[in-house]
Design a protein around this nucleic acid. Structure first.
Lengths: 149, 149
DNA sequence: CATAAACCTTCCAGCCACTGGAATGTCAAG
DNA sequence: CTTGACATTCCAGTGGCTGGAAGGTTTATG
C-alpha cells in the first residue's frame, strides 16, 4: 500500500498526558479515582501509562466540561458509549436542558447586576454609619425587602 | 409620654427565627459554627434562644447572600460593624468588584449559550454513532478545538 | 400514665470538582 | 553522589450548606 503509514504505539506518563490535554495530573488521577477514566496501565515502576485513546477520551471530557456538563453527565455519556449505545439522543436532551439552565442563570445575573448597580449608585455620597441605618449596609436590607424576601 | 409603646422583650427558639427570616435552622446553626453569628443564649433545656437583634443580623446576612456576597465577605462587614468601624467604604468596594464579577460571568454564560445553541442546531439530523465520529458527541470536540483548547 | 408529635440537640457525612501538601519512590544527568 | 524532575499514595480543605442518625424536651391527647 502506497498510502500506508508507520504508526508506532507509544505510551506515555501522566505528565505527558497532562501536557497534551491541558488537564492537570492531579485531575487525571481524580478522574480515575471516581471511575470516569478506567484504571490506567502501569509501568514496572507503577507509573501510569497512557496512549492516544486515553488522550482522546480525556480531551472529550475536557471539552464537555468546558460546556459545563457535570462529571456525572459526562460519565453517563461515556458509559453509554462504552456499552456501544449511541449516546447522541441523550446528549441532545442534555444540551437543551443546559441551554435552559444557562438562560436562567443569565437572567438571574442580570437581575443581580442591576440590583448591585442601583445599590452602588444609591450608596454614593451616603454617610458612614456604624449602625447601618443610613449607609449602604442599610440599603442592602432595603434592596432585599423590595424583592419581597 | 403619649407615644410610648409597651415593648415586651421576647426570646424565641431557632424554629421561630427560621420562620421569621426564611433561613433554615440547619443553616443558622452552621452560621454559629463558623462564627458568623455569635453563640446563642441557651434556655435551661439547652435550646438556643434568639431576640429581634439576632433576627436583624440574620436578615442582613440573608440579604447580602442574595446579592451573592460570600460568607467571608459578610463576616468582614459584620466584624467591622462589631468593632464600631463604619464598613461602608469597604462595602462599596465590594459591590464594585461584584458588579465586575457578575458582568464577567454574564459574558461567559452568553458565550456558552451560543456555543450550546450552535451545537444543538448542528446536532439536529445527525446520525447516531457509537464511536462519536459523526454525531453531536464529535461536535463537542469540534466546538472545543474552535475555541483553541 | 403512656404515647405520639413536634420541637430541639450534637455529630458525622456528603455534595461538587477539584486542589494543596506531606511523605515517599524512581530515574536520568552532571 | 547528589540534584532535580518526575512519579506515587493518602489525607485534608475549599464553600455553603444539607441529610440523617440518635437522642433529649415539651405539649397534647387517649
Amino acid at each position: 500500500m502506497l498510502n500506508s503509514k508507520i504508526e508506532v504505539y507509544v505510551m506515555f506518563q501522566i505528565g505527558e498526558l497532562s501536557d497534551q490535554t491541558g488537564v492537570p495530573a492531579k485531575t487525571i488521577r481524580y478522574y480515575e479515582d471516581i471511575g470516569l477514566l478506567s484504571p490506567a496501565k502501569r509501568d514496572d515502576n507503577r507509573y501510569r501509562l497512557y496512549d492516544q485513546k486515553d488522550a482522546e477520551r480525556l480531551r472529550f471530557i475536557k471539552s464537555a466540561r468546558a460546556l459545563n456538563f457535570s462529571l456525572q453527565e459526562i460519565a453517563q455519556i461515556l458509559a453509554a458509549r462504552d456499552r456501544h449505545e449511541p449516546p447522541c439522543g441523550h446528549v441532545m436532551d442534555l444540551i437543551q436542558s443546559h441551554i435552559d439552565e444557562v438562560e436562567r442563570r443569565i437572567q438571574e445575573l442580570e437581575t443581580l447586576r442591576s440590583e448591585l448597580t442601583n445599590l452602588y449608585e444609591a450608596g454614593q455620597g451616603l454617610p458612614e454609619d456604624v449602625h447601618m441605618r443610613s449607609c449602604v449596609c442599610h440599603l442592602i436590607r432595603i434592596s432585599d425587602s423590595k424583592r419581597g424576601n
